[in-house]
Structure formats: C-alpha cells, structure tokens
C-alpha cells in the first residue's frame, strides 16, 4: 500500500503501471529470444502436431483389450467391467470356444462415444484383460466409428486407434 506521504506522487506518476509493463516487457524479451526450438524456453506452448506431447504413465485413454502370449483373449467374461461401468458402454456376450476352459467373450462391444474414461472397468478387472491405452486422438468423422468390437466392428478392440491427421509425431 502506498504510504500517504507519497500518495500524491503515486497518483501523478503511474509507478504501478510501470511495474506491470516491466514484467510483461521482460516476458516479451525472453520469449523473443527463446522462441526457437532450443532447450531453454520461457513460452509454454507445445507446437502440437509437429512436436510430440508427453503423457504421464497413468494416462487414461481408449479402452483396449489384451491378448496373452499365446494370442488368446485374456477376458473370461466375469462381467465386472460391464457392471461397474457408470455409463454402460461395455456389452459382453458370454460364450464358449473350443480348446478353452474359461468362458470366451463372443462379443465385447465398446461404445466410445459415451465413454468417460474413468478407468473403473480396468480397476474392476481381475484378469488384467483390458487397459486404457495412451491414445487421445480419438475424434472421428462418423458416429459409427466410435463403436468398437472384437471383430466386425468399425474399430477393433485389440488394435490401437488408427492415427488420424493430427498425430503425435517426432521431430527428427
């Protein structure tokens, strides 16, 4: 707070605005000098499609099914994920497959348009058969493209999402 003694001077001469101008000017100069692809940088933007973004290991992306080393579906149709899902985006149909003791999911449908990426399904799974992968470029042009299925759907539950135009690319 301005002391009353100097308050007239402070009213007549805008030191306060000068302080702000100094700060913004400092940042302008810094960014002007560092707005290149050097190591030290003040600006915070990522030039996204060209420069890769970094994700944290626990990032929650698209739901993906996992196969074990034999190429066999790990899911045993315990229905835990279907039950826990707050938005009911998972539909599983239980069935049998020759040469497999545990139940086999005939259908495992995932409607991504309603998915809220809460990871409850992965948490509920006792068999580590699903994960949320690190894909976040999930936009598509058609609503149908959001439906995932094990086979026959528009997108495969096992495959990574096809990379779209704006893909994470590496600079070199």
């Amino acid at each position: 707070m301005a002391s009353p003694r100097y308050s007239l001077l402070r009213t007549l001469i805008p030191f306060d605005i000068y302080g702000g101008m100094k700060l913004t000017g400092k940042y302008f100069g810094k960014v002007l000098r560092q707005a290149n692809r050097g190591l030290k940088r003040t600006h915070v933007v990522v030039e996204y499609p060209e420069v890769p973004t970094t994700l944290m290991p626990r990032f929650r992306g698209r739901l993906q099914m996992i196969k074990d080393e034999q190429g066999e579906v790990k899911c045993v149709c315990c229905m835990a994920c279907e039950k826990i899902c707050p938005t009911q985006v998972i539909t599983i149909e239980k069935g049998k497959k020759e040469g497999r003791k545990t139940p086999f999911p005939i259908r495992y449908d995932f409607e991504m348009e309603r998915c809220i990426f809460c990871e409850f399904c992965v948490e509920s799974c006792g068999f580590d058969s699903i994960i949320l992968n690190h894909q976040f470029e999930l936009a598509t042009y058609n609503r149908e493209d959001f439906s995932h299925a094990m086979e026959g759907g528009f997108q495969n539950m096992f495959d990574p999402t096809p990379v779209s135009h704006y893909s994470v690319s590496s600079e070199d």
Partner: peptide, 18 residues
C-alpha cells in the same frame, strides 16, 4: 497446466479426475 500434469500423473486424467 503444471498442476493438471500432476493430476495426470496421479490418476491419469487432467480435468475429470475421479
């Protein structure tokens, strides 16, 4: 943004954290 990255590291999401 920096804090949201911390959230992302902790629980995997930045905004709708659960």
């Amino acid at each position: 943004e920096e804090i949201l990255s911390i959230f992302e590291a902790f629980c995997g999401a930045r905004l709708t954290t659960t």
